[in-house]
Simulated scan of single mutants.
Amino acid sequence: MVISGVDAHSYGPFNVNSRTIELSDADTMTVGTPIDSWLDTTEREITLTIEEAGMYQIEMRADEFDAYLELEGPNDYYREDDDSAGELNARIADFLAPGEYTLTARSAFGDGSGLFTLTAEPHELPGNGELRNDGTVTPNETLSGWYSGQDVTYDLEIDQAGMYQIDMSSSDVDAYLVLEGPNGYYREDDDSAGELNARIADFLAPGTYQLTARTAYGTDSGLFTLAIEPRDLPNDVELRNEGALTPDETLNGWYSGEALTYQLTIEESSLVTLSMSSNDFDTYLELYGEGVSYTDDDSGGGTNARLEQALLPGTYTVSARGFSASGSGMFELAVSAEPTEMQPDT
Results as ranks from 00 to 15, higher is better:
P313N: 00
G114S: 03
P344I: 06
P98F: 09
Y176L: 03
L96K: 09
T303F: 14
S144A: 11
S336I: 01
A53F: 05
S275H: 11
Q309C: 06
D190F: 11
S270I: 07
D94P: 01
N128G: 04
Y154H: 07
T153G: 01
G129M: 07
T138K: 15
R240I: 07
L271R: 14
Y209H: 01
F109S: 14
S328D: 02
N17Y: 15
G145V: 02
Y288Q: 11
I3K: 03
P13D: 13
D63E: 09
T136D: 05
E22W: 12
V318W: 04
R61A: 12
D167L: 10
A213G: 10
E100A: 14
T30L: 13
L287M: 02
T119M: 10
S18H: 10
D134T: 15
L223A: 05
E242A: 15
N183E: 15
A227P: 00
S24M: 01
E332H: 10
G135Q: 03
F224A: 08
L251V: 11
G127Y: 13
D155C: 00
E70I: 06
G129Q: 07
P13G: 13
E258K: 13
V152A: 06
Y176E: 05
A334L: 02
V178K: 10
S170K: 01
D220N: 14
Y262V: 02
I3F: 11
N140D: 15
P13I: 06
T153L: 03
V173M: 14
N279M: 11
L233C: 00
S278A: 05
M330S: 13
E242K: 13
Y154S: 04
V335W: 06
E332R: 15
